Simulated scan of single mutants.
Amino acid sequence: MHNHELTYDQASGLRRMKQQMVKVIAVTGGKGGVGKTNVTLNLAMAMAQMGKKVLVLDADLGLANCDVMLGLRVERNLSHVLSGEAELDDILVTGPFGIKIVPATSGTQSMTELSPAEHAGLIRAFSELKTAFDVLLVDTAAGISDMVLSFSRASQDVLVVVCDEPSSITDAYALMKILSREHAVQKFKIVANMVRSLREGQELFAKLSRVTDRFLDVTLELVATIPFDENVRKAARKQKAFVDAFPKTPASLAVKTLATRAVQWPVPPSASGHLEFFLEQLVHAQTEARGLA
């Protein structure tokens, strides 16, 4: 059986699964340094505080950020699932407020280097997940790889984290250009991070909008302005999330406001509101990226 047939079989098998309504949000950015993982983890905890069952997938497999940032002990990671040594449920790590994290493979292999058979294994692992959850937050890798594009395209909502630096704006634009022109993603939710004021956040959004309005057929929405906040760094030194260490600090309040909004974003009632649709989209995006579709 060819690899792409194997992948297709995985996809068709997913249609027979018990349907599970899940809100799938990809958190992206251009290059590193915009605070993407920090936004993901704190948003996850803020949603969990609202009673949502949240799963975080650390898709930046080369870095294994999420567990390191929180000082969590990880016995096994996604590589053990892909090799068949463990099921996805077995490797989930519980973080603050009950969030569950899928630990990435901390090592040399990145998600982009997985073989089609391993991708199929990843999809199967998610389709067999027994733990129920309401929200899947995908912390994508920095930069623009096939995997970032696949996860973003398959998600219902794409959050793009930007900060007020020319390289961040350029990277965010490049990502949205590829997703809109080649992967039919038309709507992006912008998070202005580490800004000095609400006005600076709005100006940053305006800068980005001016470029996208001129060259791309996309809709942008400013969904959060997270202020620069010394307590973010202090929390990181304690290996804690800032919403946990400093719940009343300005950055925490901004993320909680974002969480309140995010839980109200509609989950499509059609197939795209289901976990298996997300997985099928992921398979399709991967096979297309490899020129197999």
Rank of each mutant, 00 (worst) to 15 (best):
V185D: 02
R15H: 11
R196T: 13
N193D: 07
P116K: 09
V102I: 15
P166K: 03
N231K: 15
N231Y: 14
L275W: 03
R16V: 04
K100C: 04
Y173Q: 03
T40A: 01
K248P: 00
D213W: 01
L137Q: 10
V191G: 05
H274D: 12
K36G: 06
G273N: 05
T37P: 00
E128T: 11
S145H: 10
D134I: 13
L43N: 10
L41M: 13
L72S: 06
P247M: 08
M1V: 11
A271Y: 02
A86I: 13
S272M: 11
V138L: 13
F215V: 04
M17S: 14
A172K: 01
G98D: 07
K240D: 03
A64G: 12
S180T: 09
L179D: 04
A117S: 15
V161C: 06
D213M: 06
K130I: 04
L57Q: 04
S115P: 05
I169C: 01
V255C: 08
D146P: 14
A26I: 07
V138H: 02
S110Y: 04
F97P: 02
S150H: 06
H80A: 12
R199L: 10
V68S: 11
P116C: 02
A184W: 00
V24W: 06
M45C: 12
M17Q: 11
V56Y: 07
E280F: 01
V56Q: 09
Q109G: 04
V211S: 05
V223L: 03
D157Q: 13
R181D: 07
Q286H: 12
I123C: 08
F277M: 10
K18A: 14
D9L: 14
F151L: 10
D134M: 10
M50I: 04
A120S: 15
Q20S: 13
A254S: 15
L198G: 04
D229C: 07
R15G: 09
Q264R: 13
V158Q: 04
L220R: 03
A293Q: 07
V158A: 08
G273I: 06
T212D: 12
P250I: 09
L198I: 00
G33V: 14
A120I: 11
A117Y: 05
R199P: 00
N42E: 09
R214I: 05
V81N: 07
M1H: 14
L122T: 06
K189I: 01
T94G: 10
Q49F: 01
G107W: 08
Q186V: 05
